[in-house]
Design a protein around this nucleic acid. Structure first.
Lengths: 241, 241
DNA sequence: CGAATACTTGATTACCTTCAATACGCGTGG
DNA sequence: CCACGCGTATTGAAGGTAATCAAGTATTCG
């Protein structure tokens, strides 16, 4: 549970302060919502364990997933600064979640402004992922689109030690993948088979096995520097303060 | 140029401080970049006048537009906290731009932390727009997709006094609309004609005329509360501080 | 073990893209 | 002033990608 540390290179006293903040722990069953759309929030939730997704429902009942949240990700920092959520967060597996009250976060911001900045940064990274997905859904054909999603998830899961080079667990149904990529479940199925037939990956029992990482990456048009951020302290901000 | 005020309900002394900050003014010709991808920045740019867009180019030369920036919008707040831009910002028309150095912004944050929060909020609104676009591109057919884009732009332009009920200027080519919605220019053309034939809108010489707002909204699945945010001071944050 | 959920496969249809060619609008320069 | 060229818009035809419909199989879970 010491995943706070990935939060973004804070200094020792800042980490100390975070440890002392009151945290409520809880868990959410698979297929239940962690946060609902339209809700106003009084605490922010951080995934400690499990997979979740942000999504919206359309009038017709269709679902669009906007991002997957993995351990170490905040779900709803948006609710800290804005008064209503424009999306829901659903648990894809059983999730362990830490809830931090907004009040105590704001108190932390007073004494440790860099914590606010670290959280701001979190939301900016969300924005980067959204833009990557816009590019993906808007301009790539299904084959590359799914390949790209797999590249992204491998990359993000590796960063938190949940993926190996050749293999990682990805507890998504084909319906989930379809809702994330803007495709029908059926087409996802066929495309996965094609990826399999081409010797790029296999996806079975929630496990992705990468057979040809290089080719997967190139068909996806995946940029390996994706989300490889510089730590806060070493960049412009360090200088500016 | 007093569009700073839309920045998000800051108090008087905060506004005063903003006025005193050093600002560099400039302009960018149409079709030129305001910011390039991959760049590290030392100042943040705010559109005072004109239209711009955030975009990425794919290896094949395709372009995906992630959002349109209109007067009063920051283009690259991301560069304040992160060290490299993951997208470029291109001017669609001649743009007047204000550049605020990161250094002076960070100084402002020290004395007026709510300014930082207002900018954080700006980036969260960007995130909301991205998610709306993800839903749009991922799950709506071309007809509704373009209708939705028009609804959004009308709504945002109205908020800054640049749209009337029935008519507003939208200096986008059909290619731009295609790159924003993930469609081919040709299909945009045909879809616009269909919207015209159905009596919803006309789009000619960069002017959108709305003939049937209600029907446009309903075919788009547009939520009229989109981006209607509560001011910062009146929400949770006000209480928390 | 039975029901529910997830996956697979085939056939058909529709949406959207690509290719190709033409027309329009506008500023430049002859 | 008109010709020219360029970017933008328009239109038609052909083809491919992905959706929908329909039915059947495998898994998971209570």
């Amino acid at each position: 549970m010491r995943k706070f540390e990935q939060l973004g290179s804070l200094s020792e006293p800042e980490m100390q302060a975070l440890w002392k903040a009151p945290v409520r722990f809880g868990h959410v069953r698979a297929h239940e919502d962690i946060v609902s759309e339209g809700q106003g929030l009084s605490e922010s939730s951080l995934i400690l364990d499990g997979f979740a997704c942000r999504y919206k429902l359309l009038p017709g009942g269709m679902r669009q997933i906007m991002s997957f949240q993995i351990p170490g990700d905040f779900c709803d920092l948006q609710g800290l600064v804005l008064t209503a959520m424009d999306y829901a967060v659903g648990a894809l597996t059983r999730c362990h979640v830490a809830f931090l009250s907004h009040q105590s976060l704001f108190q932390l911001f007073e004494t440790h402004p860099r914590i606010a900045q670290a959280l701001w940064k979190e939301t900016l990274v969300d924005g980067m992922i959204h833009r990557e997905w816009l590019e993906n859904i808007g301009r790539r054909p299904a084959y590359a689109r799914i390949a790209h999603l797999l590249c992204e998830m491998r990359s993000r899961l590796k960063a938190i030690g949940l993926a190996q080079d050749r293999q990682f667990e990805l507890p998504l149904t084909q319906t989930d993948i379809g809702d994330a990529t803007g495709l029908s479940m059926i087409h996802v199925n066929r495309t996965l088979r094609k990826l399999r037939a081409d010797g790029l990956i296999t996806f079975h029992a929630n496990v992705v096995t990468v057979h040809d990482w290089k080719r997967l990456q190139s068909t996806a048009g995946f940029d390996p520097s994706y989300l490889q951020l510089q730590p806060i302290g070493s960049g412009k901000i360090g200088r500016a303060r």
